[in-house]
Simulated assay, not measured.
Amino acid sequence: MRDDAAASGSASATMLAQESGTIDEAILLPPIPPNSENGERKWARDYFSIAAGIVSVPSYSGSDERNILPGFYLRGRVSGFAFSTRGTNLQVDLVRQRRGEKTDVKLGPIINLRSDRTGRIKDPQVEALGEKKLAIEAGVMAGVTHTGLVTSGYDQLGFRVVALKDISGRHGSWAISPTIDYGTPLSKRAYVGVSASVNLYGKGFGGYYYDIDPAGSAASGLPVYDRAGRKATVGKYTLGMAGAYALSGDLRKGFVLIGGAQYGRMLGRFSDSPIVSIAGSRNQWLAGGGVAYQF
Rank of each mutant, 00 (worst) to 15 (best):
D123N: 15
F205G: 00
I27K: 07
F48D: 08
N89H: 13
T88A: 15
S63V: 12
I50D: 04
G193S: 10
V150C: 08
R189F: 07
M241Y: 06
L186S: 06
T85E: 10
A292S: 15
Y225Q: 14
T22I: 11
P214I: 08
P214Y: 07
A135S: 14
G158E: 09
I180M: 12
E40M: 11
M1A: 12
A52L: 10
R189H: 05
T118I: 11
T22L: 13
K132A: 13
I27F: 02
F81D: 06
T184G: 05
Y225G: 13
N89I: 05
E25M: 10
P124T: 12
T145G: 15
A292P: 00
Q18M: 07
R66F: 05
K165F: 02
I54D: 00
A228G: 06
A261K: 01
G260Y: 04
I27C: 07
L74H: 00
S195L: 10
D93T: 13
A51T: 05
I212R: 06
T238I: 09
R75M: 12
Q91A: 14
G216M: 08
K253R: 15
A246W: 04
A11M: 14
A142Q: 00
E25P: 02
A196W: 07
S12H: 02
A279R: 01
V291L: 15
R265F: 08
I54Y: 09
S248C: 02
V95G: 07
A196R: 00
E40F: 12
G202Y: 05
K133W: 07
R114W: 09
V95Y: 05
G80Y: 01
F295V: 14
R189G: 00
V161W: 03
S8C: 05
A215N: 09
S36E: 13
Y263N: 03
T147I: 08
I68R: 02
D211P: 08
L200G: 02
G183H: 07
G87C: 13
P274I: 04
V150Y: 11
N199R: 00
I278A: 02
H171F: 06
